[in-house]
Amino acid sequence: MINFSQPSDDHPDLSYSPLLRAALLTLTHADDQGPIGLTKTKAFKRTFVQWAAMHFNWPGYSYEELMRYHKVLNEYDHPPLELLHFLLIQLKLGRHYKGEFKLTKRGRDLAHSPGALFQELIPFYILKIDHAAYGRFENALCGNWDVWLNVINLEVENGASEHKLYSTFYDDGADWHTSEWRNIAAFSHSVLKPLEWSGLIVGQPVEEKGRTEHIYFKTPLWRSALQLETDISLTPAQRH
């Protein structure tokens, strides 16, 4: 059983979630500045995409990094914004109406309640989205969030790499330099990235055998927002 605790609106650990921060910025922008314009394909218009890139401060997707590869920014050039747009519509916090993205009453209320928005957004994103399909991976991973979260709760207490976490669940002989690399990548995208984008874990890049590996650690938000069965088995993390 996975239980998410709802933090208070002023809880400092909420600041660790890039997805929550982006959602709050988008909702308050639409509340304060009015509806957000849409293209004919119902994506956010470039003016808002550029604004989002400048204000989201999303790790790996800063305005400078995005503009390094694009002269102009469309929604699909900013994957976190594209995902957020989808989530806000699915959760009925916003709707498309006459070429604009408009807030619903629920969306307007949650724009000013970070704790309640976290409770609405993050469990839905982690537990309800088919991450493999969204990432265009052909096969879904064998496993479920109850197992993944409870095991990761133990494994990441002192830090663990993508390879180590994948091997814990699946193939102990897997390696980035074998045919298993696609499966490791699918695991990283479908399990680790949702946790990182939600702000529950954070990855630190290290060089490993000629490639960049990531070592994952829990953020304080993990401890304040998640209640898991394996909590009773935790050995406190070693701090140096």
Rank of each mutant, 00 (worst) to 15 (best):
E157G: 00
Y166Q: 02
N57M: 08
W222F: 14
E157D: 11
A23R: 02
E120G: 00
P123D: 01
K193P: 00
S62F: 03
H177S: 13
S188T: 15
F169I: 08
L73Y: 05
A237T: 12
S8P: 01
K40R: 14
A132N: 08
F44I: 04
A30Q: 02
K92D: 13
L195M: 02
E208N: 10
H29E: 10
K45N: 12
Y63M: 08
E155L: 15
Y97I: 13
A174T: 09
Y125D: 01
L165W: 09
H96N: 14
N74G: 08
T47D: 15
L93T: 13
E162L: 05
L103W: 04
L192Y: 05
G60T: 03
E213D: 07
H78D: 11
E196D: 07
W176A: 08
L19T: 12
D31F: 07
Y134C: 01
F169T: 09
A225H: 06
T28F: 00
F169H: 06
H163I: 15
L117T: 10
K105F: 05
L73I: 05
H189C: 07
F217S: 05
K105L: 09
F48A: 05
L221R: 03
A43C: 07
K193M: 11
E120A: 13
I215Q: 04
Y125V: 00
K128R: 15
S161T: 15
A116Y: 01
F169V: 09
P123C: 02
P59E: 06
K128E: 15
G107E: 02
H177D: 14
A186Y: 01
E207K: 13
L20A: 01
V49P: 03
S167C: 15
H131M: 02
P123E: 03
T47H: 10
Y76E: 14
S15W: 00
L38T: 11
F137C: 06
L93E: 09
E82T: 12
E100V: 11
P18L: 10
K105R: 11
K164S: 13
R95G: 05
T219I: 02
E229W: 05
F56W: 13
L83M: 13
N183W: 03
R68F: 08
L127Q: 04
E213A: 14
L83Q: 10
G34P: 05
A43D: 14
N74T: 14
D231Q: 12
V191Q: 02
Q33I: 05
E82R: 12
L221N: 05
P205H: 09
Y76I: 14
